[in-house]
Simulated scan of single mutants.
Amino acid sequence: MSNREGRLRTVDLARVAGLSTQQVRNYEDAGVLPPAGRTDAGYRVFGERHRDALLTYRALQPGYGAVTATRVMRAVHDGDVAGALALVDAAHAALHEERVSLRAAGEALEALAGRDAAAPPDRSGDGPGEPDGRHGPHGPDGRHGPRGLRIGEVAALVGVRTSALRVWEEAGLLVPGRERGTGYRVYGPADVRDARVVRALRRSHHLFDHIRPVLDDLRRAGSSEALRAAVEARGRALTARTRSMLAGAGALHAYLE
């Protein structure tokens, strides 16, 4: 079957996108392509709409991923255009959340670099049952002793109430160690750094869910310099993905028209 009558064979459609004929069959089975016609001999017959569907799917893939692109095209071919657009909206919303987390990471780096203006301390004492440590073995100046800092010392350094540190710990943002025998919290340098990051981001009204991945990245990177490089790389990746999503959305719009 030639394409002189406006019809395309499986191999013709495969060549359009550089695919194998089996991939084209798989795409039809998955709903990426509209159902193909059949010859009397049972061979698939495709047309211009199948070619457009295939090119649209390929345009969606880089920005939305294969899974979402497949679900979008299947919804379109099932007549559920609203459902297809809802999938597109959800993908853009997820990308926005990534940008929010990226902005939080940038603000955290600014705080660590000392560019975040220090706010006046807001403390009202320490919780019951745990000494504040300000006149303990670590000294009143807040320097790290051999066992780290107590909760009151960290609160004084960061400029928050000890109750805030406990809330952040309950939320999984801080993970201080515990002193043997007494069970008192013991904060090392990394814990103090994390507390400073949390305070800076909370002042910018970031939610715990936005702060948690920043801390995870910081701990994984091992230093603010490494995190800065990772943040810059992620920013470039998000920009590239946004452009790909715009291209894919444009192709989908043309296909729907």
Rank of each mutant, 00 (worst) to 15 (best):
V154D: 09
Q22L: 00
V198N: 00
G6E: 08
P121R: 15
G83K: 05
A117V: 10
I151G: 07
R228V: 00
E130W: 02
A230D: 14
M1Q: 05
G83Y: 02
A75Y: 04
R202E: 09
L85F: 05
A30I: 10
A30G: 03
G222I: 15
V192Q: 08
H205P: 08
A233Q: 01
A104H: 06
T21R: 08
A118Q: 15
H210R: 06
H205M: 01
E107C: 11
G148A: 11
S101Y: 08
E179T: 13
R147F: 06
R143N: 07
T239A: 00
E153I: 08
P120L: 15
A94G: 11
P35G: 00
V67E: 15
R25A: 00
G177H: 07
L149M: 10
L19P: 01
G148S: 10
P137Y: 11
A69D: 09
A84W: 03
G31R: 07
A118V: 15
R228P: 00
L109D: 02
L87T: 10
V24H: 01
A84Q: 06
A119V: 00
L246T: 03
D80M: 04
V100G: 01
G183H: 05
A226S: 06
A86M: 06
T162E: 11
R25Q: 07
R166I: 00
A94F: 13
E170S: 12
D209F: 02
G129D: 00
A66W: 03
E257Q: 09
R180Q: 07
L165C: 04
R74Q: 08
L55E: 06
L207P: 12
L246G: 00
A118S: 14
L157G: 14
A195Q: 11
I211D: 09
V11P: 05
R212K: 09
M245N: 04
R15G: 08
D191S: 10
G18D: 13
G63R: 04
R134M: 12
A118P: 15
R196K: 13
E170W: 09
G142L: 12
Q61W: 13
I211R: 15
T21P: 13
T39S: 06
G18I: 02
R58Q: 12
D141H: 06
L85Q: 05
L60Q: 08
D89C: 14
G18A: 06
A240M: 10
H50R: 12
A249R: 09
